[in-house]
Simulated scan of single mutants.
Amino acid sequence: MSRAKTTQTPPPRATIRDVASAAKTGKTSVSRYLNGEQHLLSDALKERIERAIALLDYQPSQMARSLKSGQTRLIGLIIADITNPYSVEVMRGVEAACRQQGLTLLVCNTNNELNQEKHYLQLLSSYRVDGIVINAVGMREDAISALQQSPVPMVLIDRKVNNFSCDVIGLNNVDATRTVTQHLLQQGFEAILFLSEPMTINTRLVRLHTFLQEMQHQPHKFAAQGEVELSDSQGLETLLRDFADRYADKRRAVISVNGALTLVIARAMRRIGMVWGKDIGLLGFDDLEWAELAGVGITTLKQPTYDMGYAALEQLVTRIQGSNEPIQEHAFPGELIVRGSTTLA
């Protein structure tokens, strides 16, 4: 005969009524204890409630508390590309600030897809998050419309969106680009190629325009620009070869618009036998851990990404608390880290 399997039914979750009964008090006193109003209770009563909560393993219903208070204590973070080390550092800063504020972070990765960004905006709104930090995908009209329609307080990080009034935390891209361009000029480079992913993001546009403006003041220097998808290895190799051939008699250098592209450029240079620090200069925005280990080292523009993430959450909290101060745009300074790739002999 087969013996029927029996399953144990888990014990019912303790309720606030159970805690009150075990502590020999009323539900009002327990609610005050849970809601941070412990100063209204005697020390003896607080101790009884604390013991009862531990004994019963009581877990308050966050949903019920949020419905009562009107706040969920949830924060959304929409990241454009979670595989990018920049994004990881931003997330660390936001998460650290959330812990400091007693908030819980929900992270969404759009993989640079606009439809995913719109989906997560709607999803986080349905979860009734108190606010959202967003690393926006792009500047298309439908993306801007999705942002404008969201009722949730937001702070943009890194990527400013035109025609969308919102606090922005990011790098001082104008000063940073001037710094890197002037560094290359001071190092004696005569032809500089600015390489970027497609110009769908405000940050990239600002860096390119600033670079071109700086080069306009150098009548005997040569500025070039190119756009490439990260996956287009052949196109990138062609851009690099054409630049090197066109300015074969000049001291040449490449500026990379971000860390993800810097890695792709470094690999392409290796494949075509182009050595940074010897044949050509190389400088990239974002200071990645491997940059100091790659050949003679790659010069980078370091962003305080952790601090930017932390500041974004702090600014968001002020909006959640009802601040009506004018829109803030906090631009952090960058730091030039000079290595062998831009110090050609």
Rank of each mutant, 00 (worst) to 15 (best):
Q315K: 13
L261C: 10
R140F: 08
R241C: 03
Q303W: 01
E329V: 10
V30R: 00
L301N: 01
R65G: 08
H183D: 14
R128K: 15
N112A: 14
V275E: 08
V228E: 03
I327Q: 08
N163Q: 15
E335H: 10
K221P: 07
R204D: 04
C98M: 12
A97W: 04
R267S: 13
N135G: 04
L171H: 00
M274C: 05
N202L: 15
L40H: 04
V275N: 05
I201C: 04
V168I: 14
L288I: 07
D245M: 13
R159V: 07
R178D: 12
Q38A: 09
I169G: 12
A143M: 09
L288G: 06
I75A: 03
A54Q: 08
T7Y: 15
A22Y: 07
T15M: 10
D286T: 14
V88M: 14
A248P: 12
V174N: 04
A97D: 05
V90L: 10
E190N: 12
E227N: 07
C108F: 00
C108I: 00
V275K: 09
E214K: 05
N162M: 12
I134D: 05
T203R: 12
L263C: 12
P85G: 00
Q71K: 15
G284N: 08
L316W: 02
T318N: 09
E113L: 09
E190M: 11
T9A: 03
Q216M: 13
L103M: 07
R92S: 10
S66T: 03
Y86A: 00
L301D: 00
V174P: 01
Q303D: 02
S150R: 15
E214I: 04
Q116N: 13
G102L: 10
E289V: 08
I79D: 02
P198D: 02
Y120P: 11
H39T: 00
Q8V: 15
H183K: 13
Q62M: 09
L124H: 09
F211R: 04
L103T: 02
S69T: 08
M269C: 14
G102E: 09
E292K: 06
E289K: 05
L123D: 02
R128Y: 13
S66C: 06
A146F: 05
Q148R: 13
D307C: 03
R73W: 06
A52E: 08
D286I: 14
V133H: 00
S61D: 03
E335S: 11
I82T: 14
T342H: 00
N35T: 08
R319A: 05
D175T: 15
V107E: 00
R140G: 07
D81K: 00
A143K: 05
S42W: 13
T110L: 01
T177Q: 09
I337N: 07
D43E: 07
V152W: 03
L123E: 01
A266S: 15
L301M: 06
E197C: 09
A96D: 13
L171K: 01
M274W: 07
E227F: 02
A52V: 09
I265P: 00
V19G: 03
A345Q: 06
Q38T: 11
G138S: 03
I53P: 01
Y58G: 01
N115E: 13
C166M: 09
V30C: 02
T210V: 11
S233R: 10
D232G: 01
P304S: 07
N258G: 15
G76T: 09
N172F: 04
F164M: 01
V107H: 00
K46F: 06
I49C: 03
L185F: 12
A291I: 05
F332N: 02
D142N: 14
N109T: 12
A260R: 10
N173G: 07
